[in-house]
C-alpha cells in the first residue's frame, strides 16, 4: 500500500508544483505591470507626473474599474456582458434628464437600482432557461435598454448634472477635506467589497464553481440561475454608477456615452489575466488590468495618437494577450 502511494504521487505532484510556481509568477507580473507601465509613462510623457495628471489617470481608472466589475464576474462564470455600455448610457441619460425635471438624486438612484436589477434578471434568466449564450442575450438586452431609454425621453437626452457629480470626477475634488476625488474613493470601496465577496462569501465561491463546471456546481448545491442573476445585476448596478460618474465629465448626456466601455472593460479583464473560459481570475487582477489599460491609453494620447489609432493599438494589445493566455490554458488542459 505504501509503495503504491510512493509510485503514484511524484509525477503529478512535481508538475503541479511547477505549475503553481508559474501561476504565482504570472500573478506577480500582473500586479507589477501597472508600476512598470507607470515608469514608461514617466519617461515618455513627464508632464503626466503632475498631481493633476496622476489624479486624472486615477479618476479615469475609477470609472473604468467600476464599469469592469460586471465584465469580470460575467467572464468568471464563462459568460460575457455586452449590455454594460447600454446600461452606462441609460444611467447617464436618466440622471441628467430626470435631474433637470426636478427628481432628487436619491430618487434617481433608487430608479437606477431597480432598472439595473431588471437588466441583470433579464440577462441571468434568459441565459439560463433557454440555454442561450450570454453574448446573444446581453446584446439583445442592450438593444432593448438603449431603445427604451430613447423612447422614454423622446430622444431628448440633454439635461442637468448635480454639482457634486462634477466635483466627484474632478482631479482637484476632495472628500471630507481629504484631497481625493470622490470617484476614486467610491472605486476603492467598490473594489474592497467586490474582492471580499469573491473570496469570503458563499456566492463568491459559487461564482468560481459555476465558471469552472456547471454540472458539478449544480451537484454541489449552487443555483446557476440565481448566481447569473446576481452577477449580471451587480454588474448592471456598477455600470449604472459608472454612467452617473461619466455625466460629471461632460455635463451633457448621450445613450452612446458607454460605447467605448465594451472594449475597454474586456481589455481590462483580459489584461488582468482572468481566463475567458471562466472559473479563474478575479477582480483584484482586473484592478491591475484597469490601471494598465488607462496608462496605455494615456501614453497613446501623450504621443498624440488619435482615438482611431488608439482603437487599433488596444485591439492589437488584446489579441496578443489572448493568444498568450489562451496557449497557457491549453497546456493546462492537457494534464
Amino acid at each position: 500500500m505504501s509503495t503504491s502511494a510512493i509510485e503514484q504521487t511524484p509525477t503529478p505532484t512535481s508538475a503541479a508544483t511547477s505549475r503553481r510556481r508559474r501561476g504565482a509568477l504570472s500573478s506577480l507580473l500582473v500586479y507589477l505591470a501597472p508600476l512598470a507601465m507607470f515608469l514608461v509613462l514617466m519617461v515618455a510623457t513627464p508632464d503626466v507626473l503632475s498631481r493633476t495628471g496622476i489624479m486624472s489617470l486615477l479618476v479615469l481608472s475609477a470609472v473604468l474599474g467600476i464599469a469592469a466589475v460586471g465584465q469580470t464576474w460575467a467572464v468568471m462564470i464563462a459568460g460575457i456582458d455586452l449590455s454594460i455600455p447600454a446600461t452606462i448610457g441609460m444611467a447617464n441619460v436618466l440622471l441628467t434628464t430626470l435631474y433637470a425635471k426636478g427628481w432628487s438624486f436619491g430618487e434617481i438612484v433608487v430608479l437606477l437600482l431597480v432598472l439595473s436589477i431588471l437588466i441583470g434578471m433579464a440577462n441571468g434568466v434568459l441565459s439560463s432557461i433557454f440555454g442561450l449564450h450570454p453574448l446573444v442575450v446581453s446584446l439583445g438586452v442592450a438593444s432593448v435598454v438603449t431603445g427604451g431609454v430613447l423612447i422614454s425621453v423622446d430622444g431628448n437626452t440633454g439635461g442637468d448634472v448635480p454639482g457634486f457629480i462634477t466635483n466627484a470626477v474632478s482631479p482637484r475634488g476632495s472628500v471630507l477635506g481629504v484631497p481625493l476625488p470622490a470617484a476614486l474613493v467610491v472605486w476603492v470601496l467598490v473594489a474592497v467589497v467586490v474582492v471580499l465577496v469573491e473570496r469570503r462569501t458563499v456566492i463568491g465561491r459559487q461564482i468560481f464553481a459555476l465558471g469552472s463546471n456547471v454540472t458539478a456546481a449544480r451537484l454541489a448545491l449552487a443555483r446557476p440561475m440565481l448566481i447569473r442573476v446576481f452577477v449580471y445585476s451587480a454588474g448592471a448596478i456598477c455600470a449604472s454608477a459608472a454612467g452617473v460618474l461619466l455625466a460629471g465629465f461632460s455635463g451633457g448626456a448621450s445613450v452612446d456615452i458607454g460605447a467605448a466601455y465594451l472594449f475597454s472593460t474586456i481589455t481590462a479583464v483580459v489584461v488582468g489575466g482572468t481566463s475567458l473560459l471562466g472559473g479563474a481570475g478575479g477582480y483584484a487582477r482586473t484592478i491591475a488590468g484597469v490601471l494598465v489599460t488607462t496608462e496605455f491609453t494615456t501614453l497613446l494620447i501623450g504621443f498624440s495618437v488619435g482615438p482611431n489609432m488608439q482603437q487599433v493599438m488596444l485591439g492589437i494589445a488584446i489579441l496578443v494577450l489572448i493568444t498568450v493566455y489562451g496557449r497557457d490554458r491549453h497546456v493546462a488542459h492537457r494534464l
Binding site: 458563499v202 468560481f208 454540472t215 458539478a216 448545491l221 471562466g278 472559473g279
Partner: peptide, 27 residues
C-alpha cells in the same frame, strides 16, 4: 460532473458545505 478543475483542493472539498460554514452568506 465532479471536479472544479480551475480551483484548489479546499474549494473542491468544501463547495457543497460552504452554506453550513457561513453566517448570512459570509464564510
Amino acid at each position: 460532473e465532479g471536479l472544479f478543475r480551475t480551483l484548489d483542493v479546499r474549494d473542491n472539498l468544501a463547495m457543497a458545505t460552504y452554506g453550513e460554514h457561513s453566517r448570512l452568506g459570509v464564510l
